[in-house]
Design a protein around this nucleic acid. Sequence first.
DNA 1: ACAAACGCAGACTG
DNA 2: ACAGTCTGCGTTTG
Length: 242
Amino acid sequence: MDAFVLRTKRKRDESERESEDKNKLAKLNKLKWRKLSGENLDCDYIVLYSKEEADELLIKCAELLEYNTGQLAKVKVFGKWHDIPRKQVAYGDAGLSYKFSSTIVPARPWIPFLKEIRDKISEVTKHEFNFVLINRYKDGHDHMGEHRDDEEDLVPGHPIASLSLGQPRDFVFRHADSRGKHAKRKIDSISVELQHGSLLMMNNPTNKFWYHSLPQRKRLMNVRINMTFRKMTQLAKRDISC
DNA sequence: ACAAACGCAGACTG
DNA sequence: ACAGTCTGCGTTTG
């Protein structure tokens, strides 16, 4: 966690007002924003929910969330189909869907539980979201491979808000230029342990330059649920009925 | 060009 | 030191 430095202020050319409101709100809730920086990497991290609140959210997840099965739970990589090594589902505004690899994930209609979380995150971040992708990692065997979020459907430059509940897990960033056998340059990867009840804001242009993954940690026994709130464009409104 | 997956060689652990 | 376990990095086809 050494990579984090205390958040001070945002760029001067952004409204002072916005920044003041945010800090006031943060103080009221005894919250501290921390900045994660690197070359073209810009994230903000905060523990948004107390342990008690986050515990309650996890319980509600178990009661209220359903996950995709069948073809929607598969992914094609290097020409082969695999079951994704976790459970996944998306909720969002009517008609929205999200493409990753060769799979199109349609959004289910919002439920009040998820709207409440979305509204709280909007209040704290001053950003709007119309879609949430949820991934459930039952234990340290479940994971997600290295990737960048598909920008085709995302509002350009809009941040992605990632809420973590349950088992803390390492989240690893790797720069595009340092991948592969003949990498252009050697750049250290950046790892953050995402805590129960925490929010990680992935700001522009992080996703353009850095891949991210949730690697296996086989000694961990407990479930983690992650919700990534996004702002999708209307282009993501595909007609999935034909 | 590029991958939301696995697999394996080398690192680690006890 | 040893063997079983884990993890990071490379994969190579639609």
